[in-house]
Design a protein around this nucleic acid. Sequence first.
DNA 1: GCAATGCGTAACCATACGGTTACCTTTTCG
DNA 2: CGAAAAGGTAACCGTATGGTTACGCATTGC
Lengths: 122, 122
Amino acid sequence: MDVFEALADPVRRELLLRLGEGPARVADLASEHPISRPAVSRHLRVLREAGLVAATASGRERPHALAREGLEPLRAYLAALDAAAATLTPPVAEHQLDALELELRRSGRRRTSGSTSEGETA
Amino acid sequence: MDVFEALADPVRRELLLRLGEGPARVADLASEHPISRPAVSRHLRVLREAGLVAATASGRERPHALAREGLEPLRAYLAALDAAAATLTPPVAEHQLDALELELRRSGRRRTSGSTSEGETA
DNA sequence: GCAATGCGTAACCATACGGTTACCTTTTCG
DNA sequence: CGAAAAGGTAACCGTATGGTTACGCATTGC
């Protein structure tokens, strides 16, 4: 699952913001949204597969937390847009270049092989 | 049309990167992708409605160019995630706060009114 | 003036997506 | 121990999406 696709849904964006404030249980997240718990569960799965959140096991609970490194493709994309313009841009950090390369490769793979699995990095 | 949704598609992300290097005609963009020209045209429309690109009229041609200000919601979202963690983050610029407020309001509107039009800012 | 070019859009289609309820497994609690 | 809680997933459903071809209008070039 691709970061950009994961963030296309407003519920998922909200969930991510919420988790940015600290880990939360599925039930808590579900109670904060006017949708069913299984729907929230499904969204969290998407976010996990995109590498944007990580779940831990705590008995029967599955607290989820933001995985900040998952945001690198997004930052890298913005950086690439800035770099493409050859304007006054700060140097692109190497780890961003790595994420950019990964993102471009992933996009390229999607293009050429149609339905190639996309969750390999999750 | 929402910026995040617009960027969910890899073709559109590529188109945007390409336009980041300079304006281009629809036909040129179409020739660079293994999809039909109407498909590219449709993608460009999505990007226009999301405020990410702008088209000019040049006779029968419709050069499209990246509209950098359209990326603000994306930057604002990342900033919000950074701010939510209350870590060592740079101060959030006021124009980013504005974009963030707009984005949050837009997301809220989507949530409460189901199919409210989303292209108001385009 | 006419053919070619450029591009937007409609109609169609297969697939995907985000919601729902129902069901099930595991863990916790009284 | 049995009921409740927590959470994952399947099946279903209505809607959306991203591709296609066909069509039509405006502009350009010979």
